[in-house]
Write a protein that binds this DNA or RNA. Structure first.
Lengths: 206, 206, 206, 206
DNA sequence: TATGAATGAGGCTTCATTCAT
DNA sequence: TATGAATGAAGCCTCATTCAT
C-alpha cells in the first residue's frame, strides 16, 4: 500500500521487509505485489523471476552495507583507528538498518541468491582484508593467518551488533560498543598494542 | 537409500543432510522419504508434520552439541582452562559434524523451529554463562556485560570453526585453532591475564 | 466440458451436478475443474476452499428455491389457496430442477455447509410459518403445534416431489399432484375445511 | 475403548456412532479402530473393506427398524389400527434409537451402501404396501396411487419423528404424536373415515 | 507500462489397506 | 485371531509465472 513514484523501488522495499519477516519461500510474490500496491503481473515486469528479485535486492543491500562501513576510513591515520571506525560504522549501520542486516545474514549463504551475486557481494568487503594486512605491516596486528583474522573480526562484529540491538538505553549501548571493540582489538592486536578501553567516553582512562 | 534398522533414525539423518543442503522449504518431504528409502506415508507415521520433523531434529542436534561441548569441563581447574577446552570441544565437534553445525546455525532463529524447541535448545548452553561468571569471580575474565561476552565468545567460536573447516592440513588446522583461541581469550581476559599463545604445541612459551 | 462466458458460473453448475451424483467427499476438486473445463487453480481463484464452493452453491440454490416456491402467493385470497399454490410451485420447481432439489435435501443438515449458510437458507423459508399461522387465524388450519405442521407439510411435499418425479406421463403426474395436495391439505385442515380433491381438473367440485 | 467380548459387535457399534457424527468419509477406519479399542488391522479382519462395514451396518439397522415397526401389527383388527400402531412404533423406535434413525436417513440413498443392501433394506418395508392395500380393500383408505400413499406416509412419519425428537416434555411429545398421526390418517383416509383425533388420551372425543 | 484472470506443476498430508509377526 | 508398522495413491491447496487486454 506504499505510494511511490517508482514501483520497482517500492517492490524492492516491500520484498526486503517480507523476506526478513517470513523467509524466501514463506513470501509469495502475490503477497509482495499486494503489499506494494501493484498487480501480480507488475512484479514480473520489473524482475524476470522471484530469484531475480532477491538477487537484485542482495546486491543492493550488500553494496549499501559496504559503502556505509568503509565510510571515512581513509581519513584515519592507522590500522587501529580504521578498525575501530569500521566497527562503529558496522554497529551503527547494523542497528539502524536492522532489516537489511538480518537480510544479509539470512541470505549470505542461502541457495536463493545466485553465486555471482554472492561473489559480487563478497568482493565489496575486500577492504577488510586490506585493513588487516595494513595492520600487520604496521606491526600493530598479530602476524598470523589473515583469513582467520578476517573471519574472527567479522563474526565478532556480528555478535556485537546482535548484543547492541538488544540493549535498552542509549548509554548502555555506548558502553557495550566500547567493550565489544575492546574485545575485537585485543583479539587482533600484537602484544604491545593491547589496551583495555576504546569506548568513546572513557578515553584517557588507565 | 540408506540401510538402517530404524527407519525413524534414517529419516532424521536424511532430513538433516537435505535441510542443510537445500533449506527447509527447499526440501520436499517426498524427497526426504525417497532418499531415506521409505514410503511417503512413513515419514508422517513417525512425525506428525514436516515441522515436527525439523523440531525433533533441532532438539536432538542441539542436545548432542551441548553434550559434546561441555565434555570434561568439570575436570579443569579454572575458567581459562575450561574455556580453552570448551573452544577445542566446539571446534572438534563443529568440524567433525559439519552438517549438524550448519543446521544449528541455519535454524537457530528460523521460524520453522517451534519456540519451545528454541528455548529448550538455548537452555542447554547455559553452562557458557556459568563459565563466564566463574571467570569474572576468579578475576581472570573482564568484569563487563556478561551478555556481550557470551555473544562475542559464541560468534567468535563460530567464525573459528568456519575458518578451521576451510583449512587444508591437520597441522595448519592446529595452528589456527591455537591462534583463534588466543583471539577469544585475549578478548575475554582481564588485563593481567592476557597471553599470546594457547596452541597446544606452544605450551610453555612465555 | 461446458462452454460458458463465466467460469465461476460453470464451476458452480458442474459442482452441483457432481455433488449430487457423488457426494461432497466423493467429488475431488480436480474432477470439478476437469468437467468444468478449467485448470485446477481456477477453482481456487473463485472459491477459497472446497467448502466455500459448496457454501456458495447452497446459498444460491436455497435462495432460488425459496423464490420459486413463494412466487405468486401474495395474489391468492386465503391460506388454503396459498398453500395449494405453494405446493404446486414446490412440485414444479422440484421436478424441473431435480438436481437442485436433491442437493438441498442432501446438504440441508450436513456438516459440509457452514452453519451460517444453513441459517441463511432456513430464513428464506420463514414464509411457510407465516402461511400456517395465517390459516390458523382464519380458522381453516387446525390450531395445533405449528412446528409440527411445518415439519409435516415440508416432509410431505418432499415425498410428493419424489413420487411425481418417478411418474411416467404428464397426465399421471397431474393426477398425483392433485392427490398429494389433497393429502397435505386434509392433514392440515380444520374439520369443516376438508375436501377430497384439489387437482386442477376437478375444479368446480364441492 | 469399549469392552466387549465381541470385537466385531464393538466395531459396528462404534462405527454407527461415528458415521452419524461425522459421515462416511469423515470417519477414518483408524478412528473407528481406536475408539473401539482394537488395532487398525483388526477391523479388516472382520470386514473386508470399509464399505463392507457400512453395508453390514446398514442391513442390520434396517432389519432392526423394520422389525420394531411392524411389531404387533398382526394383532390389530383393521388397517387404520395397524397404521396408527405402525406410526407409534416408528416414532417410539425413531426417538429411542436416534443414531440409528439418522444413520438410516443419511445412508438410504447414498452411494456408500451397495445397491443390494439398499434393496434388501427396502424389501423389509414391503409390509407398508400390504397395509395400504389392505386399507384400500377395506374402503377405509382412499383408492388412489399406492406409491404416492406410501411415499407420503413414510415422509410424514419422518417429519413427525423429527418434530417429536425436538419436543421438550413427555406430555408434549404425546400430544404431538397424536396430532401427527391425525395428520397422516386424514391424509390417507377415505372421505367417511376421517376424524380429528387419534391421540391416546383423547379417545372418545367426537 | 500495468493489469489480474488463468494456468498447472508440485507440496503436504490423509487414509484404506496389507502383511509379517 | 490380533497387531501396528508400513505403504502409496490420491486429495486439497499454493504459487510462480504467463498473456490477452
Amino acid at each position: 500500500m506504499e505510494v511511490s513514484k517508482d514501483k520497482q523501488e517500492t517492490l524492492l522495499k516491500t520484498a526486503l521487509r517480507l523476506f526478513v519477516e517470513r523467509g524466501f519461500y514463506g513470501t509469495p510474490t502475490s503477497l509482495i505485489s499486494k503489499e506494494a500496491g501493484v498487480a501480480t503481473g507488475t512484479l514480473f515486469f520489473y524482475f524476470k523471476t522471484k530469484e531475480d528479485l532477491i538477487d537484485t535486492l542482495y546486491r543492493q543491500v550488500k553494496a549499501e552495507a559496504a559503502e556505509a562501513m568503509c565510510r571515512g576510513l581513509d581519513n584515519e591515520p592507522d590500522a587501529k583507528a580504521k578498525l575501530l571506525l569500521l566497527g562503529r560504522n558496522a554497529v551503527a549501520w547494523g542497528t539502524e538498518h536492522h532489516e537489511k542486516m538480518k537480510f544479509m545474514e539470512f541470505f549470505a549463504h542461502s541457495p536463493f541468491v545466485s553465486t555471482t551475486a554472492q561473489k559480487e557481494g563478497m568482493s565489496r568487503f575486500l577492504f577488510m582484508q586490506d585493513l588487516i594486512e595494513e595492520g600487520i605491516r604496521e606491526g600493530t596486528i598479530r602476524d598470523i593467518d589473515t583469513g582467520l583474522l578476517i573471519f574472527m573480526m567479522a563474526s565478532s562484529f556480528s555478535g556485537l551488533i546482535a548484543r547492541v540491538a538488544a540493549a535498552g538505553s542509549e548509554s548502555e549501548r555506548e558502553t557495550i560498543i566500547g567493550q565489544g571493540l575492546d574485545f575485537v582489538w585485543n583479539g587482533l592486536a600484537a602484544d604491545n598494542d593491547k589496551e583495555q578501553n576504546n569506548s568513546k567516553r572513557s578515553k584517557g582512562k588507565t
